[in-house]
Amino acid sequence: MIQGPFSQDDAKEPRVLGDPRALAGAAQTDAEAEATRRRAGAAESSRANRRWWDRNADDYQLEHGDFLGDARFVWGPEGLDEVEAGLLGPVAGLKDKDVLEIGAGAAQCSRWLAAQGARPVALDLSFRQLQHARRIDQDGETGAGLVPLVQADAGALPFADASFDLACSAYGALPFIADTARVQREVRRVLRPGGRWVFSVTHPVRWAFPDEPGPEGLTAVASYFDRTPYVEQDDRGLAVYVEHHRTLGDRVREIAAAGLRLVDLVEPEWPRWNDQDWGGWSPLRGRLLPGTAIFVCAAE
């Protein structure tokens, strides 16, 4: 993630969704925050989530850094690796490709891309996450060199048209953004004709289930079709964390409307070797419910 994770106007019930914050460790929630469901626009969402990731980046990297590696491309908690998946295309074909990673976190994916000979740019809204990226670049021994870092909102990419051959996002940015249709249009704008855009998010079906790794997370308690954002707010009613929901159909329609073509939809199964819980993701749930959706798109 520098994600997210990787950025208008959109009530009260417990957290019952595939909260990417769980991907950062639920224990890091602001103790005084109140969980609710209410509208949250672009500016409020961007401000809240930037501050949340700046506060929690240290704990996130400490807790999950070993799993993510310094220069590894992992698509989600299941541990699907790009080396095996090849969703961006053959590894040999990445050489000399201009690649934009959106919601890059500490730029682990970008660093792996650089090691394959690509020219990645790692973009994230959180300055603290980007500081971790530079720390790894300077202290690590990945052999990838320094990855260019950009702090910006995914809904307003600071690049010229047709600047990249590929764009990717592994659990970055999209879950936290109110207007994801705009993000899809921005990605299409900066991609060259025939370029590929691959992004992973919490599987939309998880919105209906409690964000718990045990048996209590196996019973649907909310509507999959309720797009009302999940918000954590302080005692003044100001959002400190926001997550937005899109159904599978919503995602497909936004992709098509942006001039992109859906090539594949990958729903990774939980592998036998992965015995760890990660927030609401777990071997128990992973054997029964999809936890991640990966959309593979091509620029028309």
Rank of each mutant, 00 (worst) to 15 (best):
G194L: 07
T228M: 05
V150T: 10
R246W: 13
V198G: 06
V252Q: 02
L289S: 01
K95A: 07
D9M: 12
G18L: 05
D81P: 02
R50L: 11
R236P: 03
D235Y: 14
R192K: 08
F127K: 05
L62G: 00
C297R: 09
F199S: 09
D9Q: 15
D139W: 00
Q131R: 11
V266T: 13
L80F: 10
A26N: 00
A170R: 05
R38C: 11
L149D: 05
D96H: 12
F164H: 10
P210S: 04
V221I: 08
D98T: 07
E216F: 04
L80P: 04
L130F: 09
D250I: 05
Y171E: 07
R119W: 15
R128C: 01
A92P: 03
D234Q: 10
S45A: 15
L284W: 02
L260G: 06
A299E: 02
R196I: 07
V242L: 04
R227Q: 15
C297S: 14
L284F: 01
A85E: 06
L62H: 01
H203N: 08
R287P: 01
P77V: 09
P204E: 06
R236F: 08
W53Q: 15
W281H: 13
V147S: 04
Q138L: 12
A27C: 00
D161Y: 07
T219Q: 13
G214T: 07
L100R: 14
D264A: 14
A178H: 03
P213H: 00
V266H: 15
N49H: 06
G237L: 03
